[in-house]
Design a protein around this nucleic acid. Structure first.
Length: 573
RNA sequence: GGCGUUAUAGCUCAGUUGGUUAGAGCGAACGACUCAUAAUCGUUAGGUCGGUGGUUCAAGUCCACCUAACGCCA
């Protein structure tokens, strides 16, 4: 038994995430966590909400709530939706937790002691009306290059020219519209990650089995242009973790907070602390997952994220851990994903384009979405959601191949032998061939799951389901029954055991349906079927079962068309 | 402009360190079966592996250049 620490990139607090966000991190992380648990390994699967920063403050203001209250509410909303999707976090934490405050300040102190923090004086735009410094993108004005009047302080969206806020003509706050702006000098802390460039480079080089997507992004940031740049890790905001040197004040940094990108990854660690607290355990309980001097040296740590998060996880966060000089557990495998597009374009939160997690659950059970998303995960390149593909895939794979298999074998048995596994007959060449094929396929499926090859795993699982239908078609117990009822009984017995096998193997992908299959077969989820032959003998003659209701109702053409229209992002109804 | 990813049958994609007739699922056509959510199973469908030029006894699989899509950065 191994120990697996698994984290999903933590979703930002300001709203409900869309399916693209889901498939890029939380869902594959859940797949892996469920699989590892099913194999009998010890798993700690953590996720949290990323709560700090300007967008959270603005979203709270828009909602008319204090930011702390807004974040608490949205955390509850995201937690409920995650639960709806069957995301099996051991803990769903918050980056605003006391644990993260303490840990973030601790890391900053350690980095300062190591000489890896420097102060930089910068000029930033202050808005008197908003009583705050404005990030570049929250300043609007007329582009000096093309005259577009809604250019942002970082870039003009019309002519794409890169801008400084001070370049803008008639600059105004994007928040209040106020033009009462002032350029002020302010000091910030920078993480000198360029000092660690060599170490990070060597570390990345040692990760030969990471996805190309991951290492190519990391290498680019390390070597592109002038190489790895130092990053500001503080901001002039109210909402965040106050800049302190451990428990002590940080002279000159009063009223400032750490930048969200500094504290967010630290939440992976803090979240383990939150988990320990929530489950009534002491610090040693979480430290054995995170401190290699306190029991974590045999932990295998895997992170899941979309490609936009890779630089922070391969460079900035490791720089923080290495720079601390303390024995923190570093990531062992970093599985990254490309983007999921929606029907010819990108998912868009602002334009309401695409499908959001809460809406998805309002249409169909989570298993439908899990199956489509995982079996089409954007691993090698961006992939695209279309309603036609979704309907076709879930109807064919889930309803026709898996659902119908369980249905046909249980109903056949009920009509000929009653609702218990029939006795009599024995296995012959057909059964041996089936068991041999399944042994081979289950081994390959397990290999693919170990390797986090999501699409390939899904494909292999589907092939395993198809084996059940192929077997029934080949031996045709409905025909055998007429001439040799004992032989038909043996075939049916094997068929029912196949349902048990499928229920177990499918659990990481479609946990609810798997649960229903196992319940109707009246068995608990037990061991992983490494020995297929032995596993297929677990339901003995006489074992009673129930015929389940339809496992997967099909998506109709009418529903597909209605949803396609409803989620087009065109004129809102 | 720099960099990266991708470009394989109508569609979605597999194709280990280069090596016999390039594979799967879906769709399509035909056939079988009738237990089942009109579900299933089988057979077939002949794609110059984006283009050009190289390396090699041998390249979809390595190299160079080109083209296209997407993305990141400046």
């Amino acid at each position: 038994m191994a120990r697996h620490l698994i984290t999903s990139a933590i979703p930002y607090i300001n709203g409900i995430k869309h399916l693209g966000n889901l498939v890029g991190s939380q869902l594959p992380a859940d797949l892996y966590a469920r699989y590892m648990r099913a194999r009998g390994h010890e798993v700690l699967f953590l996720c949290a909400t990323d709560e700090h920063g300007t967008p959270a403050e603005l979203a709270a203001a828009k909602a008319g709530k204090p930011v702390a209250e807004y974040c608490a509410d949205m955390h509850a909303v995201q937690a409920r939706i995650a639960d709806g999707f069957g995301l099996s976090f051991d803990h769903f934490g918050r980056s605003s937790s006391p644990q993260n405050h303490a840990l973030t300040q601790h890391f900053a102190a350690r980095l300062a002691e190591a000489g890896l923090i420097r102060e930089v004086a910068e000029k930033q735009v202050y808005s008197h009306a908003d009583k705050r410094f404005l990030p570049d993108r929250y300043i609007e004005g007329t582009c000096p290059n093309c005259g577009y009047d809604k250019a942002r302080g970082d870039q003009c969206e019309n002519c794409t020219k890169q801008l400084d806020p001070t370049d803008l003509i008639d600059a105004r706050s994007a928040i209040s519209g106020s033009t009462d702006l002032e350029v002020r000098e302010t000091k910030h802390l920078y993480l000198r990650q360029s000092e660690l460039k060599g170490e990070l480079d060597a570390w990345i080089d040692s990760k030969r089995d990471w996805p190309i997507l991951t290492t190519s992004i990391a290498k680019k940031w390390l070597h592109d242009g002038d190489g790895l740049q130092d990053r500001g890790i503080t901001r002039d905001l109210d909402w965040g973790i106050p800049v302190r040197k451990g428990a002590d004040p940080w002279p000159g940094m009063e009223g400032k907070v750490f930048y969200v990108w500094f504290d967010a990854p630290i939440e992976y660690i803090a979240c383990a602390g939150e988990w320990a607290e929530a489950t009534g355990q002491d610090d040693a309980a979480w430290e054995r997952w995170w401190r290699t001097d306190k029991g974590a040296e045999d932990v295998r740590y895997t992170q899941f994220m979309g490609k936009d998060n890779v630089p922070f996880h391969t460079l900035s966060f490791p720089a923080t851990l290495i720079g601390s000089g303390e024995p923190w557990k570093m990531v062992d495998h970093l599985k990254s994903f490309n983007y999921l597009n929606y029907d010819g374009g990108q998912f868009s939160t602002s334009q309401g384009r695409g499908i959001f997690m809460d809406q998805a659950l309002g249409l169909l059970p989570a298993d439908y979405w899990r199956w489509w998303l995982l079996s089409n995960a954007p691993e090698s390149s961006d992939s695209e959601f279309t309603w036609d593909s979704f309907q076709n895939t879930v109807n064919k794979d889930l309803a026709d191949v898996l659902g119908n298999f369980v249905s046909r074998i249980t109903k056949f048995c009920r009509s000929k032998f009653g609702e218990a596994v029939p006795d009599g007959g024995s296995y012959g060449a057909d059964e041996a061939a089936l068991i041999a094929e399944l042994t081979d396929r289950v081994a390959r499926y397990s290999e693919m799951m170990d390797a986090m090859e999501v699409r390939k795993s899904a494909r292999e699982l589907r092939a395993i389901w198809a084996c059940g239908n192929e077997y029934l078609q080949r031996v045709a117990p409905w025909s055998t029954f007429k001439t040799d009822p004992d032989q038909a009984a043996a075939q049916t017995r094997l068929g029912l055991n196949l349902a048990h096998l499928f229920g177990t193997l499918s659990a990481p992908f479609v946990p609810s349906a798997s649960q229903r299959i196992l319940e109707s077969m009246r068995v608990e989820m037990t061991s992983w079927p490494d020995d297929v032959e032995a596993f297929l003998a677990q339901l003995p003659a006489g074992h009673s079962f129930d015929v389940p209701e339809v496992l997967f109702a099909k998506v109709t053409d009418d529903a597909r068309e209605e949803w396609k229209a409803r989620f087009s992002g065109a004129a809102p109804a």
